[in-house]
């Protein structure tokens, strides 16, 4: 590499495409959820209305009077992204029936309504809104970006925080091994609502995730997508490792990637030589205490057992 590399600057020469997730957003360096937003907008295109729960992606993208969104976008409060989306959908159902010229785009069928929330906004505080939207059958694609804690408020434990993780409300200590529960299974919960299409995906495989978004948007009715999105700050790792850790979570089976259609598992991204979860745990500061003694070892074993059980249920191993 030449010696003038400190001066290398292609800023004025690079070609930006149509970006509906715009740069200038305030997400931390190496943010996993920011990648999820990029992939969602790339897959959905401009004919889209996004409703977004309060949380990292809302805060980093919409400090008044700036917006990182190129699509129509609304944020209301923490726990209602699903029902705001349901209201938008009902409005367009009404326009479509009563005033077909209302929408400039070709017709309501081509309109994408996507609700986006973090794991806390979706699996915890927004659970009622999500359940209602899915049960009533609104034509809404819900995307839960999972960074495994309440990151916007400073890394508090959510129902998606994995066993053993030290967070600010599940701190490791002499009497605590960190978070004492396994991740709540949101895919099955969504499928049990009769949701036709449910899928999990990881930001480490954008092609797969975007295909799933596209597939969801083709289906009429509610859809639920769970996308794994590491957080360098909350998990305590180097910002450059976001994609690698997301992939390692998939390779260890901590985050299995699969699709469910009409309640049945229809595809699983099989893993050959599934790695022990220990390899993934070692990469993050939030699990550091697990390697300090016997109780930590027991917790690692318990987490491994939980993963093994799910892997068997899903037929994850190739």
């Amino acid at each position: 590499m030449s010696s003038d590399r400190q001066d290398q600057d292609f800023t004025d020469e690079v070609e930006h495409g149509e970006e509906l997730w715009n740069p200038g957003h305030r997400a931390c360096a190496g943010c996993g959820p920011a990648l999820a937003m990029k992939y969602i907008t790339e897959a959905a295109g401009p004919n889209t209305i996004v409703t977004n729960a309060t949380g990292c992606m809302e805060v980093v993208s919409t400090p008044f009077p700036e917006s990182s969104w190129g699509t129509s976008y609304i944020h209301n409060i923490f726990e209602n992204a699903a029902s705001v989306a349901a209201g938008v959908e009902a409005a367009y159902q009404s326009f479509d029936r009563r005033d077909p010229d209302h929408l400039d785009v070709s017709d309501e069928d081509d309109l994408n309504i996507i609700a986006i929330g973090g794991d806390g906004a979706t699996a915890d505080i927004g659970f009622r809104a999500l359940s209602g939207m899915m049960e009533r059958g609104h034509d809404v694609t819900y995307v839960m970006y999972d960074n495994e804690a309440y990151m916007n408020t400073g890394v508090q434990r959510s129902s998606q925080t994995p066993l053993g993780a030290s967070t600010t409300t599940s701190p490791a200590g002499t009497e605590s091994i960190g978070n004492d529960t396994n991740k709540k299974d949101m895919a099955s919960i969504a499928a049990d609502h009769g949701v036709e299409y449910v899928a999990t995906a990881s930001i480490s495989n954008p092609h797969d995730f975007k295909q799933k978004v596209e597939k969801a948007l083709e289906i009429d009715g509610p859809k639920f997508l769970h996308v794994y999105s590491p957080c360098p700050v909350g998990w305590s790792y180097e910002s450059s490792k976001t994609v690698e850790l997301a992939e390692l979570a998939v390779e260890t089976g901590l985050f299995p990637v699969f699709e469910m259609e009409n309640g049945e598992i229809t595809s699983v991204n099989k893993i050959s030589d599934r790695k022990p979860v220990r390899e993934w745990l070692e990469t993050q500061g939030r699990f550091k205490h697990l390697f300090d003694g016997e109780e930590g070892e027991e917790t690692i074993e318990a987490l491994q057992e939980w993963i093994d059980g799910r892997a068997e249920d899903l037929g994850l191993d190739a």
């Binding site: 609304i74 726990e79 029902s83 705001v84 349901a86 209201g87 326009f95 809104a129 209602g132």
Partner: peptide
């Protein structure tokens, strides 16, 4: 809806859409 909370929330989505 499932609750008054989401009655208000769906009205917000609908009203923002122009309804």
């Amino acid at each position: 809806v499932d609750s008054e909370f989401n009655a208000a929330s769906t009205c917000i989505g609908a009203s923002a859409a122009g309804a």
